[in-house]
């Protein structure tokens, strides 16, 4: 298989396969999680659970008091790489072209130099977070295979995309194909790893806040 054939495969059959697994996986997991149900709480609500849910969504997006100085890499690194990922994925012109072709939606892109800079910053933040996880004994103890695996799955598309744009390591055609393949791997594994938090994070935060509010601990 030549380079262009490989690229055509990842843009065709590979993309179809990955998106199919992604759609099946996301719907499966969402229905599974929300279908578990909870025991009906017969007690009267002590507070306003809904508002507490929304407050928790916001509160847990911010570091708890005193935690930022105690674990700066986790918080700052975490913010930087999450915001950076969103910028790179959703504001790079070729990515928007893909989303437009799939969903018909369109919005303005950032200049590629800006996206390039954000990519480098995002990769640096991810490496800092990884090093922190490697060298902090407690973090390392708590880490499982899933943590290392999902870090790699997230980092590879950034790295390969950046290498492709800068024509490094491999010919552009091959690197572009590897980049798209790495994104497809991410799509395939996202529903079945902790990366699924992309879909569940706000729902679960709302639920925790709502339960606490119901019990009289509005937060």
């Amino acid at each position: 298989m030549g380079e262009l054939q490989f690229l055509t495969w990842v843009r065709g059959s590979g993309l179809n396969l990955a998106l199919t697994i992604f759609v099946v996986g996301v719907l499966w997991r969402l229905i599974e999680i929300y279908g578990l149900g909870r025991k009906k709480d017969l007690s009267a609500s002590r507070s306003t659970p809904g508002a507490s849910g929304w407050a928790t969504i916001l509160r847990r997006s911010l570091p708890p008091p005193g935690m930022l100085p105690a674990s700066p890499v986790s918080y700052i690194g975490g913010y930087v790489f999450h915001v950076g990922l969103a910028v790179v994925v959703f504001l790079f012109a070729p990515h928007i072209a893909l989303l437009t072709s799939i969903a018909g939606v369109v919005w303005p892109a950032l200049p590629s130099q800006v996206v390039d800079f954000v990519t480098v910053v995002t990769m640096a933040a991810m490496i800092a977070v990884l090093v922190d996880r490697l060298f902090k004994p407690v973090k390392r103890f708590l880490s499982t295979f899933g943590d290392w695996f999902t870090w790699t799955l997230t980092f590879l598309p950034l790295l390969t995309g950046w290498l492709a744009v800068h024509h490094l390591l491999l010919p552009y055609t091959l690197m572009l194909a590897v980049h798209i393949l790495s994104v497809e791997l991410l799509l395939v594994f996202l529903p079945f790893t902790k990366l699924f938090h992309a879909f569940t994070v706000f729902g679960s935060r709302w639920f925790n806040g709502a339960v606490n509010g119901h019990k009289g601990v509005p937060v």
Partner: peptide, 12 residues
Amino acid sequence: EALSMPAHPLKV
């Protein structure tokens, strides 16, 4: 079709 777009119409 732009290079970042699917090579063929998606069947998903």
